[in-house]
Design a protein around this nucleic acid. Structure first.
Lengths: 119, 119
DNA sequence: CGGAATCCTTGCGGATACTG
DNA sequence: CAGTATCCGCAAGGATTCCG
């Protein structure tokens, strides 16, 4: 609990490093959505794409980043017609309940809260 | 559980709206850190500033946004010398355990995972 | 179907200096 | 101490077109 109690020597950075990492993994506008989207079942590229209103370039990029960080796995289904499936890894699956808690926070607080806010 | 099961009509957006809201609240590089930083006790502007390596302009902006969304409260302490204290609201406090779970995920998975990644 | 290539914009985040 | 004022660069995100 380093920095939570720190009164400011400027060196509580180590405490936040894991959080930084996590934020790197979940960076961008779509990653959490994508993870939730695959929570129950693997999905095809096109399935995700149609569902989310995301441009193919971005979707491709985000998926690749998630794959690099071992959150998802890309599997080519080889039956003449080109087909790819994305599914969560174990670390990815562990992220699901947390993200759903965040989402739940949104459902509980947002209407009351944003009333005084932007967007 | 709309979109988790959706196979792509393009209309699972409503399901993600609370998550969007949450992401708005926590947007930016520093908000989660700031929330954790105030988790145990209220903090002065300068306390946070010295501790985090953030520029005063950004810190001011982020704090203002958090305040707008009722995550924190700004209190002026009026005793001749100018002093301000930031503390979490109830909705803000509810965010703490979730953020700490995210951080925990980071501590558990990051070393093994980023080894194949960037940054 | 599952992307890659190209181009373009905006706004976020940072550095620095100044102020009541 | 607790901020504002300016200025700036870069990269994230998007639109669109093309490809095997």
């Amino acid at each position: 609990m380093a920095c939570i109690k720190c009164s400011g020597k400027g060196d509580c950075n180590g405490f936040f490093l894991p959080l930084n990492d996590l934020m790197g993994v979940l960076s961008g506008k779509w990653k959490m959505r994508l993870i939730l989207c695959m929570a129950n079942e693997p999905k095809h590229f096109n399935e995700i794409w149609k569902c989310q209103g995301i441009s193919p370039r971005i979707l491709s990029k985000e998926l690749k980043e998630l794959e690099l960080n071992s959150i998802i796995v890309r599997t080519e289904i080889d039956d003449n017609l080109k087909s790819v499936i994305y599914s969560l890894t174990e670390p990815g699956r562990e992220l699901v309940p947390v993200i759903m808690q965040l989402q739940k926070w949104g459902t509980v607080h947002r209407e009351n809260i944003l009333s005084g806010g932007q967007r």
